[in-house]
């Protein structure tokens, strides 16, 4: 472990909904610059884990450390400002806004301060440029004037990813970015994530195993709320406990 620096660490993280313990004693280190995939059957607590790291849910026990700082229980907006970006499992856009306006709103969050009222939003050139640049990165520059709700499902997922990227996060949490995508579309996202890899740290929850094995440096397996195994893709693929619990089923 010594040769890797850790960007994010969870220590004994636990979360329950009533009597149901969704995350139990999770100790996970995310290394700076790596792409870590979290896999596991439905209901294993993957999204709950992401939600706690992103500040959308408060852990019941344990700690979350980001670059050594204890950030346990911080609200979502503070996590975002620290450099933790996220995309959602359900597509959550502003459907009546244009694609560009969605992206502009994401880029605008990088402005220092918040009470900017004297110049129209369209007059902030650097924000507009940043938004357009990110639209190009995710391949939506040509669709910028369309209402976001009018995009195809795959394109909406691309926008969703782009809006998380526009925050220029150090750590990007992706909750099933390929969900509901056609083969073509998920290949495009895989390609994009491979391009991003190395420039930012990625934590990826995904069911698409082709994508996971193509992208991930390491894989963490979550089963019934517990961390079953963490390792490089080869080790995980051949781990009998993992195969029995998850991979073998398919």
């Amino acid at each position: 472990m010594g040769e890797h620096s850790t960007i994010l660490a969870s220590r004994g993280l636990g979360k329950s909904f009533g009597a149901l313990q969704v995350n139990r004693n999770i100790n996970l280190d995310v290394r700076l610059g790596e792409a870590l995939a979290i896999i596991g059957p439905n209901g294993a607590g993957k999204t709950t884990l992401i939600n706690q790291i992103a500040g959308a849910m408060r852990p019941d026990e344990g700690q979350i450390l980001f670059l050594g700082q204890n950030i346990t229980g911080f609200p979502a907006y503070r996590m975002a400002r620290l450099g933790i970006g996220r995309s959602f499992q359900r597509t959550t856009l502003f459907p009546e806004f244009t694609v560009f306006e969605n992206m502009r709103l994401a880029a605008q969050s990088q402005l220092p301060g918040w009470f900017h009222i004297w110049r129209p939003a369209s007059g902030w050139e650097d924000i507009n440029d940043a938004a357009m640049e990110t639209l190009e990165t995710v391949g939506l520059a040509g669709r910028s004037q369309l209402a976001a709700g009018a995009l195809s499902h795959g394109e909406q997922r691309q926008l969703e990813l782009g809006m998380a990227l526009a925050l220029r996060p150090q750590l990007l949490l992706l909750d099933e970015p390929m969900a509901g995508m056609s083969l073509d579309e998920s290949l495009r996202i895989t390609e994009l994530l491979l391009k991003l890899k190395g420039t930012i740290t990625l934590v990826l929850v995904e069911h698409d195993m082709d994508a996971v094995f193509a992208i991930a440096d390491r894989i963490a397996v979550l089963v019934y709320g517990e961390l079953l195994a963490v390792g490089d893709p080869e080790t995980i693929r051949n781990d009998p406990a993992v195969v029995e619990a998850y991979l073998g089923e398919g």
């Binding site: 959308a56 907006y77 959602f88 502003f94 009546e96 809006m163």
Partner: peptide
């Protein structure tokens, strides 16, 4: 339109 999303973007 979407408060949760805005929070996740640092607002």
């Amino acid at each position: 339109a979407n408060e949760e999303r805005m929070s996740a973007m640092g607002y």
